[in-house]
Simulated assay, not measured.
Amino acid sequence: MIANLGLNRLLWAVTGGLSVVAAAAGVMMPGLYDGLVSEELLPGALAQDLISVLAGVSLSVLAAVARPARQRQQLLALGLLGYLFYAFGIYVIERAYNGFYLVYLAIFALAFWSLVYGAVKLRRNLMAGARLSRGLRIVSASGALLQPLMFYPLWIVMLLPLMRERDQIDSLYSIFILDLAFIMPAFLILAVLVFRDQAVGLVLLPALYVLGFTLIFSLALAELLKPIYGTAPDLPALTAATLLSTLFLVIGGLHLFRLELLPQTQAPLPDPIKSAIATGS
């Protein structure tokens, strides 16, 4: 599906390898975020690093096994790149100035440009032949549209008092930037394209569901890790994150594995034209 797959695989391998190193350091070195991440956010940092290790390993494996005919694996890789862009973007924007900050910057940049390059290199003949049943297309597009409908109002309501009071918060402002400028527009655009049965939406939306699942599942995991830091899980937050991540997993999985990716061949020439070519006139 992706042209120039060799270069893409190299980018995936480098991004995945750096992610494993940086995230594993966060897991194994508890003091890495001292003075940089507030205590109440440490469960979230640990959960994110654990998921990032798995995402980095998975991306590295996909870089090793990806082949032109294994099209769904390539879409999974694009989704993992999106997750790593978001996860390490948080550390970059939140100014986590520890010994790995330059690595965070490298992953942030590599993941973004690898994602852009991979999307640009999608083969048009396969894109044009993408098919998905009408019922599943509506379900998938509706699930994607739910995200901007939910998070745009939520984040804007939280931003308005800060804007009114000219207040600068010390943490988690990266979520507003990444969600409002990147993730929610992507969900909105691809949802509209899938509703309209456009090939680019049909192909790329499963990758966005991979991103969404990994991000939201890390929030659920953070709640489960809170007892390590002496606090109790927030059951409503755990339930909401679990349900939303399950929704991403189910809809994204169905979309990915029911998606038909057949190359579109050139249409046959009309008989008069073929006859003219054959006679040389």
Rank of each mutant, 00 (worst) to 15 (best):
N4V: 02
N4I: 03
N8F: 05
L10H: 10
W12K: 04
W12A: 03
L18A: 11
A23N: 08
A25P: 05
G31W: 11
S38A: 15
E39P: 09
P43S: 14
L46C: 13
D49T: 10
V53W: 09
L54R: 06
A55I: 12
L59K: 04
S60W: 06
S60M: 14
L62A: 07
A63S: 14
A64H: 07
V65W: 14
V65E: 12
R67N: 08
Q74S: 02
L75H: 03
L75N: 00
L75V: 08
A77E: 00
I90R: 00
Y97K: 04
G99L: 06
Y104V: 02
Y104S: 01
A109R: 02
F112H: 13
S114K: 04
V116A: 09
V116N: 05
V116F: 14
R123W: 01
A128V: 07
G129K: 11
A130K: 04
A130E: 05
L132T: 06
S133A: 14
I138L: 13
I138G: 00
S140C: 04
Y152E: 08
P153G: 10
V157K: 01
I169H: 05
I169M: 09
I169E: 08
I169L: 13
S174F: 07
I175P: 04
V192E: 10
L193P: 10
D197Q: 14
V203Q: 00
L205Y: 04
L205Q: 11
Y209V: 04
F213N: 00
A220T: 06
A222M: 12
L224G: 09
L224D: 13
T231C: 12
T239E: 09
L244W: 00
S245R: 01
I251Q: 01
R258K: 09
L269C: 12
K274N: 15
A276Q: 13
T279E: 12
